[in-house]
Simulated scan of single mutants.
Amino acid sequence: MTCSVSQEDHWVETPYGRLFARRWRPERGIGEPPVVLFHDSLGCVALWRDFPERLAERTGRDVIAYDRLGFGLSESHPGDLSAHFIRDEAERFFPLLRAGLDITRFVVFGHSVGGAMAAACAARYSEACQALITESAQAFVEKRTLHGIRLAEATFREPGQIERLEKYHGSKARWVLAAWTETWLSRAFATWTIERYAPALACPLLVIHGEEDEYGSALHPERIARLATGCSERLILPGCHHVPHREQAEAVLAAVARFLVTRQSDCPDRNQDSTVSC
């Protein structure tokens, strides 16, 4: 499907501060529930770049991305992140976004830690969640994940590096970096697992992971796929690292579009694994 896509910016008032959201609407939409994007630990709406527009164009669905509190154009987070920040996003903040943008049913798509947040939302609001897509999501605190975070933390100490974050997060940049590194490297978070907030996933599930992901081994997509009580698919991308929607965008777009159409047919091919190259 190819069509023009319009773009709308929204501000959602919450008791904790204003959330910024952007919605992409395909001109010839198919009338299906929107895809809601959950960004990664350093991400924001702007860092999705052109992916949401291309996703709306390809699927015919509205696509909504938002900046979590403390990130991007949203207002500052009300304090430090707790070790339960993934649960908090699903329980406290996502319902406010839904109410503010009048979202009833939805598809959730999460990148990195956003994948865990999307899974928590899919589990908690199973009656409203039509499908779940995770991309480079973590399922537990792996040594490989912590090693990647420590390397990134060291890189951001170099001259000029924090300015990369300030471009997107402004004066909140140092908070954003600390929220990621200090939370994941803390003892309080060491025992976190995705099963804690998403013990089972009733909706159709697509798990996307890069074979060379520096923040998580193949154990993560395997573990996430096992949560599905219905149909699930795993897509492992050779030569791909932590940001498939940027590194191999066409493969991701094609997989998501096909998956959502298949989902409408009750997922006749259940529990599939596939490896593709671009």
Score class of each variant (00 low, 15 high):
Leu146Phe: 12
Arg246Gly: 11
Phe51Arg: 04
Ile149Cys: 03
Ser4Lys: 08
Phe109Lys: 00
Ile208Thr: 10
Ser217Ile: 01
Phe156His: 11
Glu135Asn: 07
Ile194Cys: 01
Ser41Pro: 10
Gly239Ser: 10
Ile224Leu: 10
Ala249Asp: 03
Gln130Pro: 01
Tyr66Ser: 00
Gln138Gly: 02
Arg164Met: 08
Ile103Phe: 12
Thr14Ser: 04
His39Ser: 11
Cys129Asn: 02
Leu37Glu: 08
Asp88Asn: 10
Glu91Trp: 05
Val176Lys: 01
Asp9Thr: 02
Gly43Lys: 07
Gly72Val: 07
Arg23Tyr: 06
Val36Trp: 00
His245Trp: 15
Cys267Glu: 13
Ile30Asn: 14
Tyr197His: 09
Leu37Tyr: 10
Arg223Ala: 13
Tyr215His: 09
Gly100Val: 11
Ser277Ala: 14
Asp88Gly: 01
Cys267Ala: 13
Val108Asn: 06
Pro26Gln: 03
Asp62Thr: 04
Glu222Arg: 09
Pro15Met: 13
Trp180Lys: 11
Tyr197Gly: 09
Cys278Glu: 14
Ala119Tyr: 05
Ala255Phe: 08
Ile30Arg: 06
Asp80Asn: 13
Gly210Asp: 05
Val108Ser: 03
Gln248Trp: 06
Thr191Phe: 15
Val63His: 02
Cys3Phe: 15
Lys143Thr: 09
Phe38Met: 00
Glu75Leu: 05
His10Ile: 01
Ala255Thr: 12
Gly31Trp: 11
Ala131Met: 11
Pro34Val: 12
Pro34Asp: 07
Ser217Tyr: 12
Tyr125Ala: 00
Ser82Ile: 09
Glu195Gly: 15
Asp269Tyr: 12
Phe109Tyr: 14
Arg105Lys: 12
Leu146Trp: 02
Ala46Val: 11
Asp213Arg: 06
Gln248Phe: 02
His10Asn: 02
Gly110Glu: 10
Trp180Phe: 15
Leu73Pro: 00
Gly114Leu: 10
Thr2Pro: 03
Phe20Arg: 02
His241Lys: 09
Arg87Asn: 09
Ile30Leu: 12
Gly110Met: 06
Cys203Asn: 06
Arg92Asn: 06
Pro52Glu: 06
Ile149Met: 15
Phe109Trp: 04
Phe140Tyr: 14
